[in-house]
Amino acid sequence: MKNLFKLFSIIIIIIASNSYSFAAEKVKYLKTDWSFKGLFGKFDRASLQRGYQVYTEVCASCHSMKYLSYRNLSEPGGPEFSEAQAKAIAASFEVTDGPNSDGEMFTRPGKLSDKFVMPYDNVKAAQAANGGAYPPDMSVLVKARGGGVDYIYSLLQGYEEAPSNISLDDGVYYNKYMYGNKIRMAAPLLDGLVEYGDGTNATVEQMSKDVTTFLMWSAEPHLESRHQMGFKAIVYLIILTILVYFSMKKIWSRVESEV
């Protein structure tokens, strides 16, 4: 058993040292209590629904979310809008479909099976409309940034007056959490920008938290089932390990040797 502990502590040290070596970030991100962290972490449904509102009303004018479908909005583990609500949301978007029997493309109201409508037809169009900078697709954005949710949450609140020693070009803004501190996106949020249906006060901090929660879900739509299954799997493995350990002791008791 002693050896075993040694073994596992070495494994953990190796892993820890490796993961730390990647965490080369020096900036301290703003912290908040994310409901989805931890062994039993779950999303806050109300926050997800508010986050979706912030996304559609604010972000969606520039940022696509091309891997999401409207049906996802009513699926378990997500914002869990009712199916009727999700249908209504989908129908409020014009979707290009076709070609029809005349060979022409046409538009129709969106359906649950449609992907989120994109603000621009392609990357080039997005760049042209944004002074050459491509507003990244937001579907997996949280996983595509080193600091994850904390980074996005901080960035949204990180706009400041540039220090006097930094000169900014036109269309470039100062953000203390952005890599290199220069960002092509103007501060997207300001207090009261959206009006929450549930009466929550739409402060920049609140909106940042809601939309970041929404982005976490969009990047990891199965996070809740992952946590639930993980807990069951690990409990199961521990039980089986204990059973196997005692079986092993019994079997090895036949030989005069230490296991």
Binding site: Y236, L237, I239, L240, L243, V244, F246, S247, K250
Partner: peptide, 19 residues
């Protein structure tokens, strides 16, 4: 008791494999 232990271990293991 030993038999029971082995049976239980095998059974629990089989459930996991099926899952």
């Amino acid at each position: 008791r030993r038999d029971f232990l082995f049976t239980a271990t095998t059974a629990v293991g089989a459930v996991g494999a099926a899952a």
